[in-house]
Simulated assay, not measured.
Amino acid sequence: MSRRALLRGIGGTGAAALLAGCGVPPAYVDPGDRAGRDLSARDRVLDFANWPLYIDTDDADTSRRPTLDAFRKRTGVAVRYTEEINDNDEFFGKIGPALMNHQETGRDLVVVSDWMAARFVRLGWVQEMDRARQPNVARHLDPLLRSPAFDRGRLHSVPWQSGITGIAYDRRRLGREIRSTKELWADDLRGRVTLLSGLDESFALLMQGNGVDVTRWTADDFHALCEQIEGLVRKRHIRRFTGNDYIKDLSTGDVLACQAYSGDVVQLQADNPDIEFVVPEEGAELWAESLMIPNLARHKTSAERLVDYYYEPEVAAELASWVNYVCPVPAARDVLADSGDEELAALAEDPLIFPDDAMRARLAIARDVTAEERTEFAQRWNSLVGL
């Protein structure tokens, strides 16, 4: 079971929209009010909130996390690691009240999807990291991920893991290859295609199929896409919209092609080598889920140190070999390739973990949905999902 097979938000219309809808907009925090007293030198501990199944574990004892254990032995800093994030909006609702009221969250590091990270940055709810303390991040962060529109220069966020939203299909059952998003609408796939239900998860790949530059898409691009999808839904071409249950549909043959995440497909291919993952010729979305330091975190220096630790190529390689998403540290590839382990060397050659140059040229980070756009766009998208 992949980490993304757990509960996810659909379109970002949960707690954040509720706050705005009640006439109580989330409060922006000025830069001068974000830092708290840093107790890193005194307290040899930090609190790290992450998603389930998103870190390496010991095969014999799954409660042990080797990379965190190694960090503690090296630095003397113990990490209180909690797998408390099951949904972006749910987590926003959990820590948002403290942040908007200038209170501590009790967490020094959190991991959220970039579209949610964009919201935290806009609201001023996270602190800039001191890159002078993070030479590994400065040196090894993948150039494709260095400067998303929501956080130019990655001052407030550092990717934990990355991934690609593309197309998965069963080549044996379909009997042909898929190379373009437009091929999803072919007659032989009528009723055998699924799309992702989440607005933020779904729209970029579909826009790219229409030739849109998703780094600067417009409202007209969005509404044109919705009209296209509405027509396909009414013709029953699209079987349904899914969360990560597309994995089951594809495995059983109920669908032949679908929107999918690269990390899921790596795991599916272990059981069914006929499952293919495609970065379409028109392009695919590169996304990340990023580490951030909330305002008033008590152990900011230790948190920055842990982030930089995971950007050491050897540590990044160990993590990548377990989670199987796109590694944000390209230098980790050489570590795996030279490991002397046949399975690890195979991972180094997997383009869904270390995309090759041809694949990288077709990847783009989409402009996020702005606060002004979100309510209207989410309502329209969710109306299509409910047809």
Rank of each mutant, 00 (worst) to 15 (best):
S162L: 07
I164Y: 09
T165G: 13
T165M: 11
G166N: 07
A168I: 14
Y169K: 04
Y169Q: 09
R171I: 15
R171M: 10
R171V: 15
R171N: 11
R172M: 10
R172K: 15
R173M: 15
L174Y: 06
L174Q: 04
G175D: 10
E177K: 14
E177R: 14
R179N: 12
R179Y: 05
S180H: 12
S180C: 04
S180Q: 12
T181C: 05
T181D: 00
K182R: 14
K182I: 02
E183H: 06
E183T: 08
E183L: 04
L184E: 03
W185Y: 14
D187Y: 02
D187A: 15
D187E: 14
D188W: 02
D188N: 11
D188A: 03
D188T: 09
L189P: 03
L189R: 04
R190M: 01
G191N: 12
R192H: 13
L195Q: 00
L195S: 01
L196F: 12
L196Q: 12
S197N: 09
G198V: 09
D200L: 08
D200N: 15
D200S: 14
E201N: 14
E201R: 15
S202H: 07
S202Y: 11
F203Y: 15
A204Q: 13
A204R: 13
A204W: 04
L205D: 03
L205R: 09
Q208G: 03
G209Q: 01
N210V: 01
G211I: 11
G211N: 03
V212S: 04
V212G: 06
D213A: 01
D213Y: 00
V214I: 13
V214R: 02
T215I: 00
A219H: 09
A219C: 00
D221S: 05
F222H: 06
F222C: 10
L225A: 08
L225V: 04
C226F: 06
C226R: 05
E227P: 01
E227T: 08
E227Y: 01
Q228V: 10
I229K: 02
I229V: 13
E230F: 00
E230L: 08
E230K: 11
G231K: 09
G231C: 07
L232M: 08
L232A: 08
L232T: 00
L232H: 11
R234F: 03
K235P: 01
R236Y: 02
H237R: 03
I238E: 05
R239G: 00
R239A: 04
F241I: 02
T242R: 03
T242N: 06
T242F: 02
T242C: 08
G243S: 14
K248N: 14
K248F: 08
D249R: 12
